[in-house]
Amino acid sequence: MPKIDLIAGTRPNFVKIASLINAIESSDKSFEYRLVHTGQHYDASLSESFFKDLELPEPDFNFGIGSGSQAEQTAGIMLNYEKLLRKNLPDLCLVVGDVNSTMACAITAKKMGVKVAHVEGGIRSNDLKMPEEINRIVTDSIADYFFTTTTSASRNLVNSGHSQESIFFVGNTMIDTLKRFENKFRRPGIWSELSLRPQEYFVLTMHRPANVDEKETLKSFLTEIINHSEDKKIIFPIHPRTSKTLDLDEIINSNLHIIPPLGYLDFNYLVKNSLGVITDSGGITEETTAMNVPCITLRDNTERPETVEIGTNDLIGTNPKNIAPAIKKILTNNWKKGQLPDKWDGKSGERIISILQEILVE
């Protein structure tokens, strides 16, 4: 029976992989799979909560790579995956997203003669200062099959010289998982602690190096957000990278509530019921579009333009002075009405597995 490796290393990866595993388990199981966790996100308690929340099986392999520089993580993942492949080659290596694990396993598999499929292929920010953009370009340059979230991503691949026959527009696996678990979202503890009410607070997330690594830059963002959110509470599940920079003594405000990172079901409950989200994440802009929640993105570019052109996201750049007018639009109920992009219907994983079944029996 054909066998594929499903590669995941970070929490967003698990959300995408959950869709695929659910589709495999619901199919006639014409191929086997190994779930390979590189351990790139190394918070054990949070990783465990994601596996439980998303009803994922225990990984067949966990490399436990942990923190380190870009080169250290990439090299560690490649060395571990190569050892695994030397013992047992799959028929296909399937990678998702754009993290170091994606690129590292794609390169390793390809050099070992294993074909590579890339879920979320073709998306581009056209900003080579982003490590993720480099990972995308490298992975797409060597992959054999591409599963795209939008027709614009498919077009990017064609323009890069890939054949139409290798590109499959299937939709967004992140949205599969969101739709599947939406009725299981749960109130986090902070809800009752702060007596939160629907549409009466903002959710804030920040983790990109350009936004959080310099103390004064981060402080200026937070000051603008606090000063222009009126009496609305701001719930800030803080990323480990951000917490290293933030001096809590300098950002004291009764409306800003900094909390530890949340599990998938808890976090999305907060997002779904919020007045709006302020973020520099790409994946969250997809989820807010799917849930029709206003989203302000603190970036100069995005690899997910459909969330701006069709969805509820507004890309306001990285000038903190742009924050006030954006928040005002939300507070005065003047935010744009979003729509769901084509094929973001909860069936992307099913489409991918159906295509893989055909590929693997060729």
Rank of each mutant, 00 (worst) to 15 (best):
I190A: 04
K129V: 02
K219W: 07
L128Y: 12
F185M: 11
N159I: 12
A153M: 07
A210W: 02
G121V: 02
L196P: 04
S141W: 15
P198R: 07
D176E: 10
I190V: 14
K115P: 04
K129L: 09
T150Q: 03
S192F: 09
I190W: 03
H118F: 06
V203A: 05
A109V: 09
I137Q: 06
M206Q: 04
V212I: 10
P131S: 09
E216V: 15
M130H: 13
E182N: 15
I167P: 00
N135A: 12
P209H: 14
K110N: 11
G189W: 12
G113W: 11
R197F: 11
V158W: 02
N183K: 12
R124Q: 06
Y201I: 04
Y145V: 05
I167D: 00
T173W: 03
M174Q: 10
K115I: 07
R186H: 05
N126V: 15
S152V: 11
L178W: 02
A153S: 12
I175P: 00
F185T: 01
S141Q: 14
I167V: 08
G171H: 03
Q164T: 12
D213W: 15
F202G: 00
E193P: 08
S195T: 08
I134H: 04
D127L: 14
E193N: 15
S192P: 06
S141K: 15
V114Y: 06
Q164W: 10
L157K: 01
D176H: 12
S160V: 10
H207T: 08
V158N: 04
T205C: 10
R187I: 09
T205N: 10
W191K: 11
W191Q: 07
I137V: 11
T173P: 04
H207A: 05
A117Y: 00
V212T: 05
G121E: 00
S220K: 14
G171L: 04
P209E: 06
E182H: 14
F169R: 01
Y201A: 01
K129F: 12
A153R: 00
R136S: 02
E214L: 13
G122R: 00
Q164I: 05
L157M: 10
K184D: 07
S152Q: 14
I167G: 00
R124V: 05
S160Q: 13
L178N: 01
R208N: 06
R180Y: 13
K219S: 06
E216P: 09
G161I: 07
S154L: 02
F146P: 00
P198F: 04
G122H: 01
N135T: 11
K110P: 01
T149F: 02
S141T: 13
S195V: 11
K110V: 05
K179I: 13
K115S: 08
G122D: 01
P198E: 06
R180L: 09
L204N: 01
L128F: 15
R208P: 02
E133R: 13
E214K: 15
A153E: 00
A109K: 01
I137D: 00
N156I: 11
N156A: 10
P188Y: 11
A117L: 03
A143Y: 02
D176Y: 10
